[in-house]
Amino acid sequence: MGAFRGGAVLAGFFALTVPLMPVQALLVQSGSRRARTFPHWYHRQVCRLLGIRIKITGKVASDRPVLIIANHTTWLDIPVLSAVAPVSFVAKKEVANWPFVSSLARLQRTVFVDRSRRTAVGATAGEITGRLARGDTIVLFAEGTSSDGNRVLPFMTSLFAAAKPSAGEVGAAPDAVVQTLSAVYTRLHGLPLGRADRPGVSWFGDMEMRSHAWELLKAGPLDVEIRIGAPVPLASFTDRKELARHSEGEVRENVVRSLRAKQDGDKVDVADPVAAPAAVRVRVAADPGQKWT
Rank of each mutant, 00 (worst) to 15 (best):
H189K: 06
F141A: 11
P22R: 14
R109F: 03
E248W: 03
A61H: 03
V18F: 15
H40A: 15
L20F: 02
K218Q: 09
A61K: 08
E248I: 13
A244K: 05
A276G: 15
E143C: 00
Q290S: 04
P79V: 11
G51M: 13
A11P: 00
L49P: 01
A196M: 00
G126P: 00
S32F: 15
G149H: 09
V113Q: 07
M207K: 05
I78C: 05
R5N: 02
M21S: 03
R257D: 01
G2E: 07
H246Q: 05
E242W: 00
L140G: 02
V46I: 12
A285H: 08
S211C: 09
R5H: 01
R187F: 07
Y185R: 00
G289H: 13
V282G: 12
I54Y: 13
R210H: 09
H212Q: 12
L181R: 07
T17N: 12
A167E: 15
V87C: 03
L107F: 04
V268I: 04
T129K: 11
A61N: 01
V251D: 02
R109G: 01
G126Q: 10
M1E: 14
C47M: 12
V201F: 12
A276K: 03
S247H: 07
K59W: 01
A279W: 14
A196F: 03
A163M: 08
V184M: 02
H189L: 09
F237P: 06
E250S: 06
R240C: 01
A8Q: 11
S166G: 15
F155I: 08
A11G: 07
V46M: 12
A83K: 08
E248S: 07
K267Y: 08
T129Y: 05
V139I: 15
A173V: 00
T238K: 07
R283E: 13
F13C: 05
V256G: 00
L191C: 03
V80P: 13
Y185P: 00
A133H: 04
L191M: 06
A35I: 06
A163Y: 11
A11S: 10
S182G: 11
L140V: 02
A61E: 11
S182M: 04
Q24H: 07
F155A: 03
N71Q: 04
R134Q: 14
A91Q: 06
D239R: 02
E253F: 00
F14H: 06
D148H: 01
P231L: 01
N97I: 02
A142K: 08
V9F: 11
D266H: 04
V177L: 15
S247A: 12
L234P: 00
V28R: 11
R44C: 14
V152N: 10
V282D: 13
V270M: 10
A162Q: 15
V178I: 10
G122K: 01
A83I: 12
Q29T: 14
A219F: 14
F160A: 03
P79M: 14
P288R: 08
V280W: 10
L193G: 04
A176H: 14
G135S: 05
R118C: 10
G2T: 01
L67I: 14
F204C: 00
L50Y: 08
W41E: 10
L26S: 13
G265F: 12
R5K: 02
R36G: 03
V256T: 02
K262S: 04
